[in-house]
Amino acid sequence: MEISALIKKTAAETRSPEDTALVWPNLVYIELISILLATAVLLFLSLVSPAPLEELASADTTPNPTKAPWYFLGLQELLVYFDPWLAGVVLPSMIIVGLIVIPYVDPNPNGKGYYTFSERKFSVLGFTFGLALWYILIVIGVWFRGLDWSWYWPWSDSSIHMSVTAVKLVDLELIIQNMFGLSADPVMTLGRYAPTVSNIITVLLFLGYYAVGFTIPFLLLRNFFNQLGMIRYNLVMFFFLSMCGVPLKMFLRLIFNIKYLLVTPWFKI
C-alpha cells in the first residue's frame, strides 16, 4: 500500500471524539484496579498454597508417575496414543504453525473487532474444538492419571497399581492381514522398507483419510473452497484434518485396540 493511501485509511479509521474516551482516567484506572486485584489474588494463593519442594533430585529413584508441568500434560497424555516424535515434537509444532497461519487463511472480513459466532461459525467451531481437546487432555493428565500412568477415576484407590493384564494392542496391518487372510510376505523391497500387501493397504488408508477429507468439501461445499482459494483451502484442510485425526486415532486405539495405523522402518503412526 502506498504511504498516501495508508495515511488516508488511517484518517478514515480515526473516530470522532464522541466515539473515543481519554485513556487517563478511563483506561488507566481499569488497569490499576485489575493489577491490584491480580496482586491480591496472587498474594492470597501464595499464602494458602505454597510452592512444593520434594526430595532432592536423584537419578536413582524414579517417581511414579512422572508428570510434566500441568500445561504440558496434554502432550504427555498424547504419549499414550502416539510415539514421542509425534506427541512431543510434530504435533506441538503443528499446533504452533497452525496457530501462526490462522490470520493468513481466514479471509472472512466479518467479525473483526467484535464477538460473533453467527458470522464465522466454522472458524469459531474449529478453534474452540481444538481448545476443548487441549484442555480435556490436560484435565485427564492432571486428575485421571496415576501410578504407571494408568487411568484412575476419582473414586478409584490411587495407592494401588492397576492390573497389569491390560489389553493387547495390535497394529492395523495385522488386523487387515488376518481379517482378509492376506499373505505375510513382503511384495517388494525398497531399502529397509519391505511392505506386505496389508501394509500397503494401511498406507493407502492413511493417505485416503487426507484425500477424502480434502475432496469432500471441495465437491460439496464449493463456496467454502472458492472463498479460500487453492492455497488457503489446502492449508486449512491439512491442519483441520490433522487436528481431527488426533482424537480419531485415540478412539481407534481405545475401542479397537489398534496400536499403530501405519508402520514403516523409520516411523510409526
Binding site: V124, F129, L131, I136, W151, M250, L254
Partner: peptide, 30 residues
Amino acid sequence: YPYRLGITLFLIVGTALLTVGFVGIAVWLE
C-alpha cells in the same frame, strides 16, 4: 480394565461439553 469405553465416553462428552461451553461464551458475548 482400562475401562476403554468409559475413557472414550469421557473424552467425547468432555470435548463436546467444553466446545459447547466456549461457543456458548462467544454467543453470550455477541
